[in-house]
């Protein structure tokens, strides 16, 4: 179990785009994962307000969901996104770190089902939620 978590952590931390966006894996194990992404000017989607682009939120959500799948006790290896839906509840507050949490709530031999939320400092009001289906791969 600890090995699997370690493997998933190594895998996530080796992703070039995750590094590029400054993603940090803060928690992983048992089908759940938490990834943070600090505010950065290069992520701005609305130059007038400084709010980060929805696409950057999608990227961290996708990574977090994948990490949750790989850490599930029944997952034999890697994973790929089949589909991912994101609902944007509000603009993330400029300057604040995005924290995403994902849970792999069901897994079969072939498909893993995941839900995730993204928050900033105001943890009572999520910035976005996601739900998706992921493949279950035998190896990495």
């Amino acid at each position: 179990m600890a090995d699997k978590t370690k493997l998933a952590r190594q895998f996530i931390e080796a992703i070039p785009h995750a590094r590029e966006l400054g993603m940090v894996l803060t928690e992983i194990g048992d089908g759940t994962a938490e990834i943070t992404m600090a505010y950065d000017k290069k992520l701005i989607g609305d130059p007038e307000t400084g709010v980060i682009h929805g696409g950057a939120v999608s990227a961290v959500m996708d990574t977090c969901c994948g990490a949750a799948v790989m850490s599930h006790p029944s997952a034999p290896g890697g994973t790929a996104t089949i589909d991912l839906r994101i609902d944007y509840m509000r603009a993330a507050t400029p300057g604040q770190t995005i924290v995403t949490r994902a849970t792999c709530h069901h897994i079969t031999r072939n498909v893993a089902f995941v839900r995730a939320t993204a928050m900033d400092d105001d943890v009572d009001r999520p910035v976005a939620t996601a739900s998706g289906a992921f493949t279950v791969e035998k190896g990495f």
Binding site: I15, G55, A56, T63, G78
Partner: peptide, 24 residues
């Protein structure tokens, strides 16, 4: 660009990059 890679073993573009590209 190499910074868009999500799976270095295949290699493949990060799913989040694809989502961002489509949204942009």
């Amino acid at each position: 660009d190499d910074k868009l890679i999500g799976n270095p073993f295949l290699p493949a573009i990060h799913g989040g990059v694809t989502a961002a590209f489509l949204e942009v």
